[in-house]
Design a protein around this nucleic acid. Structure first.
Lengths: 226, 226
DNA sequence: GTCTATACACAGATAGAC
DNA sequence: GTCTATCTGTGTATAGAC
């Protein structure tokens, strides 16, 4: 699997993405017309990522967001109940988005080693498609209410657990050597996160996600195998 | 080298640390009495880390900081010219601090492999000693002015470059196999950063910095060596 | 050196016209 | 559905007494 073939499987247009978002959070918007809503939502979220990922969500003002989206403050408030609401929607949609994709993409009939590689690639590719979302979610977890923060941490740990279990299976089936599976799982996650956290750097160096994935893969296998 | 022996070499009391900070930024404070200043500075910075690292620097208000340090707003302003000033001091002191320590701790008469391991350990141990500072610097770079942001990025790249050069020397001396030294250097840095970014997690799991260092070391050497 | 009291700006949020 | 106008709270910052 490479990024291109991955895209063919899962990629959707921006319109489809924001339609999904609209439907998921319909109750939170005052707008009934989906066509209009989807268009504006795209503008609002894209501008939010641009502003917030550059100078922080707290530092971004709704007036700036209104200017960037060419809407008025009043208009904006038809789409969000509050500023915190906006952040919360981003977190919760990304969560929903990933859960959905992972559940259809992760296969269970592979060997631990193959499944591990598969999981790594899926994570990297999804974060490539949704980079601003991932970056935002990572940097702005602090802004969430306790309840939503707990959800965020849980989905963090879900991935780590998944990795750890695969490593342990691999050890049992002797594909991997004895190892501290928990630390290694954390380290792998750190490598996966770096891809979307330092995206600007890799972009400048013209490192493709496939190159990156291959290097992570090699590092992980060399660590785990005999 | 382990963390304990490292501490014997470099560790200083909180008082010494903040005295160093006071002297470096003396012009910025209105307080002439060093004894008094050092005590208060410690309170101010520790409270800042607690508040800012939990909910973000922008979200932290100076009123909260005043309460936490049991000072009044007016009192606080004898120590900082502005809120941004406070962030800037943190960045610039950490920068100064690391430069100083690295320059005395990095040895140049070792083999590339040994020097690489040495560098990794120094970074981990320094970030262990100064965890709140490192965490703050990572999460709040956004708040800096353009000029200071550039400095921050430079010191980021300094470490990465250092790692890359050591990998390349190792390849030349055949200690290491052919490799993409630039990507691997970035990946190593990601592993180093995870230690202070996810400190809460490792603490809960009772993972010591030495255990962590050993695992990173193994991962790196297995990747680089034949 | 530290406090209290206060100025001032600007953010988030809403009401009501169109 | 979107705009303009406006309210209200609160954050940063300072002046001046002690």
């Amino acid at each position: 699997m490479n990024f291109k073939s991955f895209c063919k499987q899962v990629k959707q247009s921006a319109e489809e993405l924001y339609a999904e978002l609209y439907l998921q959070h319909q109750q939170q918007f005052s707008i009934r017309n989906q066509r209009i809503a989807v268009k504006k939502l795209q503008k609002i979220f894209e501008a939010t990522f641009q502003l917030a990922n550059e100078k922080g969500f707290q530092a971004m003002t709704l007036r700036q967001l209104a200017t960037a989206t060419k809407m008025s403050m009043g208009g904006l408030y038809a789409y969000i109940h509050s500023k915190d609401d906006l952040a919360q929607i981003i977190h919760s949609f990304l969560n929903h988005y990933c859960e959905e994709r992972f559940s259809t993409l992760v296969s269970n009939d592979l060997s631990p080693k193959e499944e591990l590689i598969n999981l790594i690639r899926i994570h990297l590719y999804l974060s490539e498609l949704m980079q601003p979302w991932f970056y935002f979610a990572y940097m702005e977890t602090k802004n969430l209410s306790k309840k939503h923060k707990a959800t965020a941490i849980n989905s963090e740990l879900w991935m780590e657990n998944k990795l750890q279990k695969l490593i342990e299976s691999g050890i049992k089936t002797k594909q991997f050597k004895e190892n501290n599976s928990q630390i290694i799982a954390s380290l792998i996650k750190a490598l996966l996160q770096d891809w979307y956290l330092k995206r600007w750097k890799y972009k400048k160096r013209k490192t493709s996600v496939d190159t990156y994935a291959k290097q992570v893969e090699e590092m992980v296998l060399r660590t785990l195998e005999n």
